[in-house]
């Protein structure tokens, strides 16, 4: 018996909405950003991935998944992007060289690994203490200097530095064991 093997696939096939939402929340954002790489438009990428998740749920009983759910999701979204490009008669050179694949190429695999790491980092940042998160985002996302952040938040520069180093320490700790 394999009660717990491929739990995500079992949950998908069971039709459990809560489990499906969890699957969506785990992979959706990274899949959209993965699709952007091919269709170059985030709104189109969102539509492609949303369509895919609707179809996946509808066809959950008939699909046969012989790889990890993660590989299956990325490969399917990749193929959906190629279908989209073909339907739009987009014939740029790079599109002509893209085919529907059962396996993703090395570049795509690297992109997925990078997105995985970025997604994990983002999730950890979102769980940082409020002030720490705010300061870290101002530094990393908005590109503000520590002096600027200190002035904007009426804090000392040292406090800002402390909060940023605290965030980095938490990231390093939480990413222990994560393939980088």
């Amino acid at each position: 018996m394999k009660n717990y093997k491929n739990k995500e696939i079992s949950s998908l096939k069971s039709g459990d909405i809560a489990a499906y939402e969890s699957l969506f929340r785990q992979y959706y954002a990274a899949l959209v950003l993965f699709a952007v790489k091919y269709v170059s438009d985030i709104d189109i990428a969102r539509e492609i991935v949303q369509d895919f998740f609707v179809r996946l749920y509808e066809k959950r009983l008939t699909i046969s998944i012989d790889v990890s759910i993660k590989s299956y999701l990325y490969r399917s979204v990749y193929n959906s992007c190629i279908n989209y490009l073909n339907q739009r008669n987009i014939h740029e050179k790079h599109v002509n060289n893209m085919r529907i694949e059962n396996e993703l190429d090395e570049d795509a695999e690297k992109e997925i690994m990078t997105l995985d790491l970025q997604h994990k980092i983002y999730a950890i940042i979102e769980e940082l203490p409020v002030k720490c998160r705010q300061i870290f985002k101002m530094n990393r996302f908005e590109g503000l200097k520590n002096e600027e952040i200190a002035q904007m938040l009426n804090l000392s520069k040292r406090t800002v530095e402390t909060q940023i180093s605290k965030a980095l320490k938490i990231l390093r700790k939480r990413l222990a064991g994560f393939e980088i």
């Binding site: 970025q118 997604h119 980092i121 990231l171």
Partner: peptide
């Protein structure tokens, strides 16, 4: 690597996970 990618993680800010789940 973590430091550099933390800057790139910004792009996840543009995804409205809750809103898009409602749509799906």
């Amino acid at each position: 690597k973590i430091w550099n990618e933390s800057e790139n993680a910004r792009k996840f800010e543009q995804i409205n996970l809750a809103g898009d789940w409602k749509t799906v």
